[in-house]
Design a protein around this nucleic acid. Structure first.
Lengths: 240, 240
DNA sequence: AGTCAAATTAACTTGTTAGTTAATTTAGTT
DNA sequence: AACTAAATTAACTAACAAGTTAATTTGACT
């Protein structure tokens, strides 16, 4: 029924998709561009997985946000699950790269921790899907692919800084790994729960840039207070 | 075909389910029991929604875990989305009840906060689906039904305790609502991310009761350190 | 022991979704 | 300008999932 008309419709849709919706990336794309296509698929997939997790994600909206047919997903990435793994791997590479940038070896534990915390906030803020995909991985996928993310590296670095602070006596006695978990909780919850938090009157503005900066200051102060040794009566706990 | 045999099968399944799997509740259930059926549906639905969120959840596994037909879900609760709302409402009622039990009005801010933190850990531990459903609500459902949970009450109570601590000078200057968010992050992340965390060598045992008790102590100490005033006159370290 | 309404089921319908396939388009090469 | 292989599409299939319905079972109350 109406084959010619269908073709015209399709043409117009394509125009709409590549101009009005403006999904197709800035990298030159006259018509075909496999690298750009793959990137767009990963971008759209990351957003979908961040919202719904592996099980809840649908491939059709991913394709729709990409301006390319659903079959392209399978052409380049195989199954939905393999696409998911590709998203995790790309996130891991990007994150690993960001962590590598910072050198903390000749900073005091306190300064080093502050640097880490700043990176953590900025990363959550600029890469809003990273943490959400990971949380879904834990909640809906039993952490099956968590190892693909290489997170043991940054957590280990953080724990080492904490341990150094304890050893040097500027941090209170604490379990460095558990404390890293507490810190990750502080650094991620605000972003992951924002859609709930914004419905609490005092936090209704929590997604504005100013509110986020305000949160960042508050969170960093909270964590520092949580690990620094309370001054006053001197603890003679040099060694444990 | 084999009506009698089918009846026998069904019977046996019921027996298996009510003893071995122990789903059918303790309230007497010879054959029909609408209240027990509704409870079982809510139980199974809560588990499914906690894992997959509203969008990702399937009604068939809910029915399968219930020992009752999928049609019963619609008979008692309507659509999947209405069932989801019913789960949220039941969680809210249970949680509200738990929060009501504690009276904090004649405790010091520090003691009051400790009491809240203990309740928070215990609740996450004994009601493992509560926090996960809420997080999914934020991440996959844009917090559409968050208000059904009545969480502004306990958060407001906590913020009031923090404000009292600031006013009385035992807590450092802090934003009580943001600090409540930090605290919620600390109190929930360990449980929500456990499936990831357990794959980190030092946390491989993180789900055992001893590990959870250990985490609880560490988390409470971290939060108290995070809010208490660092300098000043001698602390009455009643803790520990 | 029979009637009635609530509880429950099996089987169905209708819409979705992951993945496939065959045909078509295009860029680069000869 | 014809050839080729990669890129891309439209249309399809088979499985799944939400919700419906008509029939059946059961307990309670005559």
């Amino acid at each position: 029924m109406g084959r010619r008309i269908l073709e015209v419709d399709t043409c117009m849709e394509l125009v709409v998709k590549s101009s009005a919706r403006g999904r197709r990336s800035s990298t030159a794309r006259t018509a075909r561009n496999p690298e750009a296509t793959k990137t767009q698929i990963l971008d759209a997939a990351e957003e979908e997985f961040a919202r719904y997790g592996l099980a809840g994600a649908r491939t059709e909206p991913i394709a729709a946000n990409t301006g390319v047919t659903k079959a392209m997903i399978h052409y380049y990435f195989g199954t939905k699950e393999e696409l998911y793994q590709a998203v995790l791997k790309r996130q891991a590479a990007l994150f690993h790269n960001a962590v590598e940038q910072i050198d903390v070896s000749d900073l005091s534990p306190e300064a080093a921790l502050k640097k880490f915390l700043r990176l953590a906030v900025d990363y959550e803020n600029t890469q809003p899907y990273h943490g959400k995909v990971l949380l879904h991985e834990a909640m809906t996928n039993e952490g099956k692919y968590f190892k693909l993310t290489g997170w043991e590296v940054p957590i280990g670095l953080g724990a080492a800084v904490l341990q150094r602070g304890v050893d040097e006596g500027c941090f209170r006695p604490l379990d460095p790994w558990l404390t890293m978990v507490h810190i990750m909780g502080v650094m991620s919850f605000y972003f992951n729960a924002a859609n709930n938090l914004k419905q609490l009157e005092p936090l209704s503005d929590c997604q504005s840039p100013e509110a986020i900066e305000n949160y960042a200051d508050s969170a960093i102060a909270f964590v520092l207070a949580g690990v620094l040794k309370h001054s006053g009566p001197s603890h003679s706990m040099a060694l444990e």
